[in-house]
Design a protein around this nucleic acid. Structure first.
Length: 661
RNA sequence: GGACCCGUAGCUCAGCUGGAUAGAGCGCUGCCCUCCGAAGGCAGAGGUCGAAGGUUCGAAUCCUUUCGGGUCCGCCA
C-alpha cells in the first residue's frame, strides 16, 4: 500500500526492496562510525549521555526538552543544541557555564570536529566531514527505505475521502483524498501500522433520495421499453386529476408520465428531485436490465434493493476515480452494516452504563435561531464532560439515530478492532463536529484511543488565473476524473500537498502543468530526471558498488550541503508524521531538489566539479554515489506523496514556440 | 451570541511544536550555456510576522484582549 510507485526501469533490482516493509533500521558499522539513519537523533543521544555524566543528580525527565537540530544559519555549523539552556535552571547553573562544560565533553566524540558555545547557551557542533559522508552508504544500503522510522507497534486508522456515494467525486473531494493518502503513507513510513479506511455513508436520508432518483431514471427506461409500464405507473401515481389522467392515457414513451412520476417523487420529499446529474442514467438502464418491470411499484423492500444497487454502482465509480488518483484503501466500511451489526445499540448501552446519556432539551443556538425552533426532548450525550461546548443529541425526536449516533457506532467499531490512534481527514465545513467526536472516542475508550482530525480547506480551481465555476446547475461541474485527465495524476497529488491542509489553496490548471521553477512538481521531477540522466551516462553503476566508494573527494560546499540535506530526511519524516502534516514532505523535496540543482550548476561553472570526469575515476565514483543517494531520497519522498518519479522529462511544450507571447 | 481555522516580502506560501540576523517561489534589476538536460543556477532590492499587552534567558510560534477573512452552530450527512 505504501508502494504506489514503480521502481524505474534501469535501476538495479536492489532498489526495489523498499517496497517490502523494511526491517527496523539496524545499526551497522562502517568507516569506523556507528551507522544510524537519523544522525540528529544519534547526536541527541550522545548529548544527553554527556549531560547525564555532568549532572548525575538530575532526574531523567530533565533532559526531555533537549533538542539537536540543524541551525538556521549554516555558518554556525552542522548541528546546534539548546541542551545547556533547557537544563540550566534545574541544574542551578548558569547556561553559558554549563554550555562550556558540555561543549568540552561533546568535543571528544568521534563524530565531532569542532564545538562552540554561542549566544545565551547554544552549542554549535561541526561534524567531521567523513562522518557526514559516511551517511551516503547508509542511504545506499537501504534505498528508499531511508527515513523509515522503527516500528512503533501503534495501530493507526486513517479514514479519508468518505465521499457520500451519491455521485462521482469532484475536486472538492480530491484534496481530502490526496492529503489522507499522503498522511497515511507518511504515518506508515514513520513506523506505524496503518490501515487506510473509507467510510461509506450509505444509511441516511440522502442515500434514500438517491435511490428515488435512480428509480426515476429506471422509470424513464421502463416507459420506453415496455408499453405496459405506463399502466402500472398510473396505479402507483394513485389519484389522478383529470388532466393527469389524460396525460397518462395519451403518454408516449418519453412522454408526460415520466414528468408526473418526477413530480410525485418531489412531492414526497417536498423538494426538487436531487442528484439530477446524468451519471444516474446508466444506473437506470442497469436496473431495468437487472430487474425488468418488477420495480415499477416501489415499496420499502424494492426501494432498499434499488438503494444498495445504486450505492454499489456509485462506489464502483468512486473507486475507479480513486484508482486513477492512485489512492487505494485497505478497508471500506459501510455505515448501514455497522448499524445493522448492532454497533449503535452497543454504543448507546456502553455510554448509558457510564452514565453519560440522559433525556433533555437543548438550548436554541444563540444569534441565529432557526425559524421552526421548538424545544424538544431528545436523548443527549454528555459531551461537555469531555471538553465539548454543549451536550449532543443521539436520537432525533422521532427516536431514530442521528448521524452523530451512527458515527459513534462507527468509532466504537474502530476501537473494538484494536486501533490505538484514529485519524480523520475532513473538509473544514465539518470543523464544528470535531469536539463532539473526540468526546465520544474519549468516552467510549476511556481515553485509551486518541482521535485526530485534519481539516482540509476549500480548493479554488483557476485556469489562467481566472476562477473556474463549479456549479452543478451550470453544468460546468469539474469531476475528479476531468481534473486528472487535464493535468495528470502526479501534478494533482503533488500540488495538493504544497499547502498546509488547513489553508485555502488555489489550484491553477495552467500552472500545475507548467514546466518551470515555480511549479514544484516539475522542479522535483526535473532533479530526479537529471540524476537518472547522469547515472545512465555513467553506465548504470551498481548501487552496491557505489556504496563502497571512497567518498573523500566530496569536499565542495555544494556537495556537503546536499549531504547535509539528505541527513535531515529521517527527522523530517518523523516531524511531519507527528504533526500530521504531509505537506512538509513536499517542501523538503523542493529543498532537496534545489540543493541538487545548485550543485549541478557548479559543474557548469567549474569543470572539475562535473559529476563524470573520466580522468578522475575516484572522484567520479564518489559523486555518482552522492547522486544515487539523492535519487533514493527523492524517490523515498515521492513515494510518500504517491507521485511517480520520472526517468526523463518529455518535451510537452510542443506548439508553445508557435504561439505568440 | 458562541466554537474552530487563518492573518508573515507587491503576489502565492514555508517557518522543523519556544531558539541565534524571519525564509522560498513568482514579479523587479544585473549576471552565468565550448559542457552529464539553461525545462536550470548566481547576485541584488523588498518585512513594525494584523494590533496591543502578558509569560521567560529568548515569542512569528504559548496566554489574554482586539481588528480583519473563512467555516460551522437541534431532528443534513
Amino acid at each position: 500500500m505504501v508502494c504506489a510507485h514503480q521502481v524505474p526501469p534501469g535501476l538495479p533490482a536492489a532498489a526495489g526492496r523498499a517496497c517490502l516493509r523494511p526491517e527496523p533500521p539496524r545499526p551497522l558499522r562502517r568507516s569506523g562510525f556507528l551507522m544510524q539513519q537519523d544522525i540528529f537523533a544519534a547526536l541527541r543521544a550522545r548529548t544527553v549521555d554527556a549531560l547525564r555524566g555532568l549532572l548525575p543528580e538530575l532526574p531523567e525527565d530533565a533532559f526531555s526538552r533537549v533538542v539537536v537540530e540543524p541551525p538556521r544559519d549554516a555558518s554556525h555549523g552542522d548541528m546546534a543544541t539548546n541542551a545547556a539552556m533547557v537544563v540550566a535552571k534545574q541544574a542551578k547553573l548558569a547556561p553559558p557555564k554549563l554550555a562550556a562544560d558540555l561543549a568540552a565533553k561533546l568535543a571528544e566524540l568521534p563524530e565531532v570536529a569542532e564545538v562552540a558555545p554561542a549566544g545565551p547557551g547554544f552549542i554549535n557542533i561541526r561534524l567531521k566531514p567523513e562522518y557526514l559522508r559516511a551517511q551516503l552508504p547508509v542511504v545506499l544500503a537501504v534505498g528508499e527505505a531511508y527515513g523509515d522510522g522503527a516500528p512503533t507497534g501503534r495501530k493507526v486508522n486513517v479514514e479519508y475521502v468518505s465521499a457520500n456515494p451519491t455521485g462521482p467525486m469532484h475536486v472538492g473531494h480530491c484534496r481530502g483524498a490526496v492529503v489522507g493518502d499522503g498522511l497515511a503513507n507518511l504515518l506508515a513510513k514513520a513506523g506505524h501500522a496503518v490501515t487506510k479506511e473509507y467510510y461509506i455513508n450509505d444509511a441516511g436520508a440522502q442515500v434514500q433520495a438517491l435511490a428515488w432518483a435512480a428509480w426515476w431514471r429506471y422509470v424513464v427506461v421502463a416507459v420506453r421499453r415496455d408499453p405496459a409500464a405506463i399502466k402500472e405507473l398510473a396505479s402507483w401515481l394513485g389519484d389522478l386529476t383529470e388532466s393527469e389522467a389524460w396525460v397518462v392515457a395519451n403518454s408516449e414513451p418519453d412522454g408526460g408520465i415520466v414528468q408526473l412520476v418526477k413530480e410525485r417523487i418531489e412531492e414526497h420529499f417536498e423538494t426538487k428531485l436531487q442528484y439530477g446529474g446524468n451519471y444516474l442514467v446508466p444506473v437506470g438502464e442497469a436496473l431495468w436490465n437487472e430487474f425488468g418491470s418488477s420495480m415499477l411499484t416501489p415499496n420499502d423492500s424494492s426501494l432498499g434493493t434499488i438503494r444498495s444497487f445504486t450505492v454499489a454502482a456509485m462506489m464502483k465509480e468512486i473507486r475507479a476515480d480513486l484508482a486513477a488518483l492512485g489512492v487505494t484503501h485497505d478497508v471500506f466500511i459501510s455505515e448501514a452494516e455497522v448499524v445493522a451489526a448492532g454497533k449503535l445499540d452497543e454504543a448507546e448501552a456502553t455510554l448509558n452504563a457510564k452514565g453519560l446519556l440522559y433525556r433533555g432539551i437543548l438550548e436554541p443556538p444563540k444569534g441565529k435561531t432557526p425559524d421552526d425552533w421548538e424545544p424538544r426532548e431528545q436523548t443527549l450525550f454528555r459531551a461537555t464532560q469531555f471538553g465539548d461546548d454543549t451536550d449532543r443529541p443521539l436520537r432525533k425526536s422521532d427516536g431514530s439515530g442521528t448521524y452523530f449516533a451512527n458515527d459513534i457506532a462507527n468509532h466504537l467499531h474502530k476501537i473494538e478492532r484494536g486501533f490505538d490512534e484514529l485519524v480523520h481527514v475532513w473538509g473544514a465545513d465539518h470543523g464544528g463536529y470535531v469536539k463532539r467526536m473526540k468526546a465520544a472516542v474519549a468516552a467510549l475508550s476511556d481515553n485509551r484511543v486518541s482521535l485526530d482530525v485534519v481539516l482540509t480547506q476549500i480548493v479554488h480551481v483557476l485556469k489562467d488565473g481566472q476562477p473556474v465555476r463549479m456549479s452543478k446547475r451550470a453544468g460546468s461541474y469539474i469531476t475528479l476524473a476531468d481534473l486528472i485527465d487535464e493535468v495528470g495524476r502526479d501534478a494533482v497529488r503533488f500540488t495538493m500537498l504544497t499547502r498546509k491542509a488547513d489553508a485555502q489553496m488555489e489550484f491553477d490548471l495552467t500552472k500545475v502543468v507548467e514546466q518551470s521553477r515555480d511549479n514544484p512538481v516539475f522542479y522535483v521531477q526535473y532533479a530526479h530526471a537529471r540524476i537518472r540522466s547522469v547515472l545512465r551516462a555513467a553506465g548504470e553503476p551498481a548501487v552496491a558498488d557505489l556504496a563502497g566508494a571512497d567518498l573523500s573527494a566530496l569536499t565542495d560546499s555544494a556537495e556537503m550541503a546536499l549531504i547535509r540535506r539528505i541527513t535531515t530526511w529521517p527527522r523530517v519524516v518523523e516531524g511531519a508524521a507527528a504533526a500530521r502534516e504531509p505537506h512538509r514532505i513536499a517542501f523538503y523535496l523542493n529543498d532537496l531538489a534545489s540543493d541538487f540543482h545548485m550543485l549541478w550548476n557548479r559543474g557548469r561553472e567549474d569543470a572539475t566539479l562535473r559529476f563524470i570526469r573520466p580522468e578522475e575515476p575516484v572522484a567520479t565514483r564518489a559523486r555518482l554515489a552522492l547522486l544515487a543517494a539523492t535519487g533514493a531520497v527523492l524517490r523515498s519522498g515521492l513515494q510518500v506523496m504517491g507521485v511517480t518519479p520520472v526517468e526523463e522529462l518529455r518535451d510537452e511544450r510542443k506548439g508553445d514556440s508557435a504561439e505568440p507571447g
